[in-house]
Design a protein around this nucleic acid. Sequence first.
DNA 1: CTGAATACTTACCAATCGGTAAGGCGTCAA
DNA 2: TTGACGCCTTACCGATTGGTAAGTATTCAG
Lengths: 207, 207
Amino acid sequence: MPKARPSSDTRTAFLEAATTQFSDKGFYGASIASIASDLGLTKQALIHHFGSKEQLYGEVLQRIADQLGAVVVEAVSEESDPSRQLERLLGLLFDTRRVRPEQTVLITRELLDNRPRAQKAGTWYLKSFLNALIALIKRVPGWESASDGQALAAVYQLLGAINYYAISEPTLTRMFGKQVYRTVDEAFPPQLQALIAACLENPPSAR
Amino acid sequence: MPKARPSSDTRTAFLEAATTQFSDKGFYGASIASIASDLGLTKQALIHHFGSKEQLYGEVLQRIADQLGAVVVEAVSEESDPSRQLERLLGLLFDTRRVRPEQTVLITRELLDNRPRAQKAGTWYLKSFLNALIALIKRVPGWESASDGQALAAVYQLLGAINYYAISEPTLTRMFGKQVYRTVDEAFPPQLQALIAACLENPPSAR
DNA sequence: CTGAATACTTACCAATCGGTAAGGCGTCAA
DNA sequence: TTGACGCCTTACCGATTGGTAAGTATTCAG
């Protein structure tokens, strides 16, 4: 089977442009023509590679899910203590707000949009990630006997504290100005650290 | 000046239908024709009342901002202790996830979308609300000397913990099933309470 | 009874949406 | 050289988008 050289390059270029545009404008707001024109091509070139807008979107999401899984692996392999693993993982997630803000934005959009656009409801790109978080916190001392629901509730609060802030950066910057936002960004990590510690030290059994 | 009777009724009906649809599908995903057909009218009737889709969206957001302000007033008037005021306010916000989930969803969407659709960037529907939160936490013992940035960082973590969970309900329900979600929903409030207490007891000065 | 204003309609518009059909062009195996 | 395939194009499709123009129906002040 002959393989053309620039094919995979174009594909990943499409995926990156699509990630940016879906993140900025959402699934409905981003058109395939606009994504294609970002790399100087027509929308039919995009269709040729991905078949449909929905499939392109699916691949974008799968890509993010994979990267999320890689972050979990990284955090777990770096530390041995369950508490530190979780702290490290949440710290890495917090850092992506700088490097790949589109990633968190897109995950949040998927959270909001997957209801009406749920024909392919079988694919839960985030489920394995959440399950990893649940498994992680249940290995923290005091959390062993917690139920999945309790573990998910706790972990989701910390995730929300991080992600909600991550998607708010442009709004907060323009609402309060850059210099104020910088003080927020400095004050955030230590506060977050304290919040994580407080959460881990308060398993539901000790309520 | 003559006044027609059913005018305001139709207007609020439009606003409510628009709130639901914008919440479900986003600004681009919801069409004015679809919103109008929800009350058996044509899109031109909507245009007649609101002028344009953008203005309709603006009124929807303004309405939510007003309701948010009313919640702040309610929490402050119910309690006298600053800590309890804040706890009460966050508790009320958490409760809206049941009564008016569209509200939190729409606020989050605005957070995500206002960058590309920011021609009327002068209107910050959420700024007064956030300022109220900042002022509130700065009256909590130990927080008086905190900067605005530190106060916003702390408050935004709690807000994120609540709102991120609020927008995730449909996804979590279908991802884990109704019975598991119910255990999450039961475990959430006490954990949240502990998180709020931990945050208030850890002002940035004592880091 | 008359005139104006409100509420809403049908008819229409250009622009854009996602997607199909068909063909041009270059590369490479046979 | 030839044929097939991958990459990408122009041309086109019906459906839908937000919005304008013009008119109808109803109501109400004078």
